[in-house]
Structure formats: structure tokens, C-alpha cells
């Protein structure tokens, strides 16, 4: 039984009770992904599975055999930070940093959802295929990631600068 984590084929020898979050952190030492509420409410554990964002705390690792998982450790390329990581630094998109890995993974997948034309609750016209990443869309689509320091303004600026075609 195996899966791919940040491009590396990884053996899974686990008790079925192990969550994907615990597998990443405790079994593989990939502690970038954070455990906040451990019940799907805070988004700190957000990772990408085949490019889609999920809460790793609400996933049994055993269900992800054969899948490709990307964590915050897999976002940089050749030692260079992902543009969104750079933007978080530039705009002070964090204070304590605990929610940041989840915010980063979530925002990257969110931008992809917009590219694919997936609507949100605030998308005005469901019949058009395109949604713009404006201020309301960004905040609605990122509502699954809480920041208890309240660094939201910086987070919104960083995501907006990286992905929005128009200013948020």
C-alpha cells in the first residue's frame, strides 16, 4: 500500500484509525500541516489531494492509497518559495503562522477552482462559467480557513496579488 507525497512514493503501514493528518505529521514527520481543531472547523490541516483541497483531519489515511498528496512542504520549486508564500511575507499574511500552511494550500486550490469555473455562494450568475476573484468571492471561498490572530487583511492582499485578475 502506498501513496505519493510531494512527488515521493511513500509506503503506508498504518492502523486504519490513522487520520491523513496524523499520518503526515507523526509517521512522516511532515509537521508543516497543522492540527488545529481536529474536527474540520478551522482549516489548518488543509492539504491537496490530486490538486483538490481537503481537511486532512477528516480523512482516514487508508482511503488515500494510490493518491497524490501535496502539503506545504511541497509548494516550493527548486528551493524557491511559491509566489503565494512570497506574497504572504510581503503582505504580513500571518502573525503566529499556525494557520498559514492551510491558508496557502487552500488558496492555491481555490484559484484552481475559479479557473475551472466552479461557482461559490456569492457568485451572482450561476449560468456564466466564469467567476472573478473579487473581494467578496475571495472571502467567501476562503471561509473554511480561520486565522485566530486576525491577519485576514494581509491574507486577502497576498492571495489577491498572486491570483486575482482584478484587484480585490
Amino acid at each position: 500500500m502506498h501513496c505519493t507525497i510531494n512527488g515521493n512514493r511513500t509506503e503506508m503501514v498504518i492502523d486504519p484509525r490513522t487520520s491523513l493528518l496524523d499520518f503526515l505529521r507523526d509517521h512522516l514527520g511532515l509537521t508543516g500541516t497543522k492540527k488545529g481543531c481536529n474536527q474540520g472547523a478551522c482549516g489548518a490541516c488543509t492539504v491537496l489531494v490530486d490538486g483538490e483541497r481537503i481537511n486532512a483531519c477528516l480523512a482516514f489515511a487508508v482511503q488515500y492509497q494510490g493518491r497524490s498528496i501535496t502539503t506545504v512542504e511541497g509548494l516550493s520549486r527548486g528551493g524557491a518559495l511559491h509566489p503565494l508564500q512570497q506574497a504572504f511575507i510581503k503582505h504580513d499574511g500571518f502573525q503566529c503562522g499556525y494557520c498559514t500552511p492551510g491558508q496557502l494550500c487552500s488558496a492555491i486550490a481555490m484559484a484552481n477552482e475559479i479557473e475551472r469555473g466552479i461557482p461559490s455562494f456569492v457568485t451572482k450568475n450561476l449560468s456564466t462559467e466564469t467567476a472573478l476573484l473579487d473581494h467578496d468571492e475571495l472571502r467567501e471561498r476562503m471561509s473554511g480557513n480561520l486565522c485566530r490572530c486576525g491577519a485576514y487583511n494581509g491574507i486577502v492582499e497576498a492571495i489577491s496579488e498572486t491570483f486575482a485578475k482584478e484587484p480585490a
Binding site: R53, I54, L58, A59, S106, M110, S120, M142, G144
Partner: peptide, 23 residues
């Protein structure tokens, strides 16, 4: 669903978060 059953789309998008709706 978006065209003929907009109510279903709207209701789903009112629920949970992007992460949870993916699962």
C-alpha cells in the same frame, strides 16, 4: 444543475467550506 436546478447549487454552496464540499 446550475441551469435547471439552481436551488440545489445555491443550497450546496451555502453549506460547509470549499474543503468539505470537495469530500
Amino acid at each position: 444543475v446550475r441551469r435547471d436546478y439552481g436551488l440545489v447549487s445555491r443550497a450546496l454552496l451555502a453549506g460547509a467550506s470549499g474543503q468539505l464540499r470537495n469530500k
